[in-house]
Amino acid sequence: MNLRLSYFSLMICIALILAACQPAPESPGLTVAAAASLNNAFNEIGSVFTAQTGIPVAFSYAATGTLAEQIRNGAPFDIFAAADTARIHELAMQGFITSESQVVFAYGEVSLVIDPERGLNIQSFSDLGHIPIDRFTIANPKIAPYGSAAQAILENARLWTQLEEQLIFGESVRQSLQYIESGEIPAGILPNSLLQNSMLTIIPIDDTRYEPVAHEAGILAASPNTSQAERFIQFLYSPQGQAILAQHGLTPISTP
């Protein structure tokens, strides 16, 4: 029994040491911090870009504010693609992003999203104030630009105080969407860029009610892959890149 046990221990130790001694993960090429709203669009951009250039790209999606704070704490990204311009400017001022690399590459709009299985009789945005809804989700306005856009819409429509107690903040727009898709929350305001293949009921919101969200990108000052990063940003506002963004519900810069 002792012998078997010592073999067992030995195996565990060897396994641990072998696993621990594997080479450290290398940066696969470019690492892009991207706003959660860009999840679907950038996944496609990434595979097309890699197919054309041979440069692998990894994306880290989260709310723009979360990523900005990670960059301040030294996260080793090459590119930051935000759903915001203010944060990019702030990071550039603080020296985390090179100022010459900043570029707005798309605009995003939002829609009212309804879970069709809840049978809510909402035909237009203006119905929102008249139909009782038990819960309503937007992304956390403190860290997600689409969340603050949604807050502005609700405030302008004088619905904020009415809905405030029903509001559930997602950590990013991706989480808010997941809340609705999983049937937990019947409705919310989300970016169109996440809703292209959605089975949910999508009710457009008149763009007079809010400022469309500007997506700005920049290259990190600490990036060791500046030339590859520049190629990625060029690809973003190339006609092909703009077309992919448009397919995913974003507004290209070439057609203001």
Binding site: T31, A58, S60, A75, R174
Partner: peptide
């Protein structure tokens, strides 16, 4: 460590990311 695929995206974080991305 954040959520960087291939570098810091461990299994639990990959699960979180997959759930968030639907």
């Amino acid at each position: 460590a954040g959520n960087i695929p291939g570098q810091t995206q461990t299994l639990p974080i990959a699960i979180y990311d997959a759930v968030q991305a639907g």
